[in-house]
Structure formats: C-alpha cells, structure tokens
Simulated scan of single mutants.
Amino acid sequence: MPMSPPVSFYYHTNKRSVSGHPLVFLHGSGRTESDSADFLAQLSLHTEAVFIRGQHSQTPGYTFVRRNDDLSLDYDEIAGDAKDLAGFLVHLTLQNPNWQKPPVLIGYSSGAIMAAAILWHYRDLIAGAVLLRPQSPSMERPAPLKGLPVLMLSGLWDERRDADASLHLEIQLEQARAKVTHVTLRTGHGEAEDGSDFSVTKRWLEETFSIR
C-alpha cells in the first residue's frame, strides 16, 4: 500500500542515546502521550523512546482508534489511520539517523489496536510489538509476518474486550507466522496491580531485543 506524505502527529521524545531499537509508544483511549511516558518510567529502560499522541480527540484526551456508535470497529478507518501513522514512522526514521535498528511499538488498548494495524499493513517498518489489552484491527489475517516477535498481554477479567478477542488475534498472528508470546494477566482492562504489565514487558524486551 503506497504512502502519502506524512500526516503530522504531536509527539515528544526522551532524547536518550540509542544503540539498538528505539521504542515507540501509542497510548489508550481518552489518554495522552504523557501516560506512555509514565509506562516507560515504570519499565526503567535506558533507551530512546518516542511518545505519540493519537490523532482523534476523545475527552479527556485523545485516541488512535474511533469506534462506531455500537462500539464496533471501523476496519477501513483503522487501515487509513495506520497508513498515516506509517508515513509518520518513516518520517521519524529519516529524522533520526542515530536509529540503527527499526523501532519496537508498544501500544495499550486503542494504541494496541493501532500497533496491530501497523503489523497488518506495514510490518517492514518495525522490529516487533507489545500489545497490551489488544483487539484485532481486521477481519482478515495479516500478510506473512516472517517470525516478527509480538508480545500480547491480555486481562483475565477485561471488561472492555469480548472473551475471545485476544485468542482470535493470537490465532490470526500465528497463522501469519508471527512469533507470538501471549500472557494472560490477573487483571481487567487496566494495569495489573502486581506490576506484571511492566515486569513481563521488561523481560520480553530484554530477552528479545537486548533492550535494557
């Protein structure tokens, strides 16, 4: 799918040096990029990170994915928004010649849906993804992912996801030959009280990409 000139996204970065993969964070619905910065602080990782704000306003913040009135997903709009974000990721890469390797996406909730949409349509732009409380961005499975590493963290009592949402996404990714690690945490849609969102993500990033 060809990309247009990049749509501008509001973002900020921690401006740290990077010798490997930078991290790109996508926040959840009604939140802002500052929530993503808080997540990185909990990870205690020393690498460059970019915190992008969702392009759609949703009180009291923003979102990467809008829902229909019946709360279903508009897959065509998600694909179009993914195209815009992909163009911006290309722009970021060109603007940061110190990025020696492709970024790893970390998305929560609507940000996880958008990160998954990048997997579906623009997998060559990224090295992998962490999807927290995800949902599939498409009825179709993605093009071959060739072993792309993906960490999925679903909530056992997630009140915002259908019971089979995470399993459906896992099956789609595995059928596309992604290297999926799926962990179900004892929590709802929010962060696990025992800190397992952070500990599991940190360990996976260290083991998979040597990000510390």
Rank of each mutant, 00 (worst) to 15 (best):
M3N: 08
V7T: 14
V7W: 05
V7E: 10
F9D: 01
Y11P: 00
H12S: 02
K15A: 12
R16T: 08
H21S: 11
V24D: 04
T32C: 03
S34M: 09
D35N: 02
F39S: 03
S44F: 09
S44Y: 07
T47V: 15
R53K: 07
R53Q: 01
H56D: 00
Q58S: 04
Y62V: 01
F64H: 05
V65Q: 02
R66I: 07
N68W: 06
D69F: 12
D70W: 09
D70I: 11
L71S: 13
D74P: 11
D76G: 08
D76H: 09
D76A: 13
E77Y: 05
D81Q: 08
D81S: 13
D81C: 03
K83H: 14
D84P: 06
G87L: 05
G87C: 08
L92D: 02
T93I: 07
N96S: 12
Q100R: 12
Q100L: 14
K101S: 14
P102G: 09
P102F: 09
V104K: 06
L105H: 03
I106S: 02
Y108C: 03
Y108H: 10
S109G: 08
S109L: 05
A112M: 10
A115T: 08
A115E: 07
I118V: 12
L119N: 03
W120G: 05
H121V: 09
D124L: 09
G128K: 14
A129I: 11
R133Y: 05
Q135K: 11
S138I: 04
E140K: 14
E140Y: 08
P142I: 05
P149N: 08
L151F: 09
M152H: 06
L153Y: 04
G155P: 00
G155R: 03
L156A: 14
D158M: 00
R160Y: 08
R161A: 11
S166A: 12
H168K: 01
H168M: 00
Q172G: 02
Q172I: 00
L173F: 02
E174W: 03
A176P: 02
A178Y: 04
K179A: 15
T181P: 06
T181W: 06
H182R: 12
V183G: 04
R186I: 12
T187M: 13
G188N: 06
G188H: 07
E191K: 09
E191I: 13
E193A: 15
D194M: 11
G195T: 14
F198H: 14
F198L: 12
V200A: 11
T201H: 05
R203C: 06
R203Q: 13
R203D: 13
W204I: 02
R212D: 10
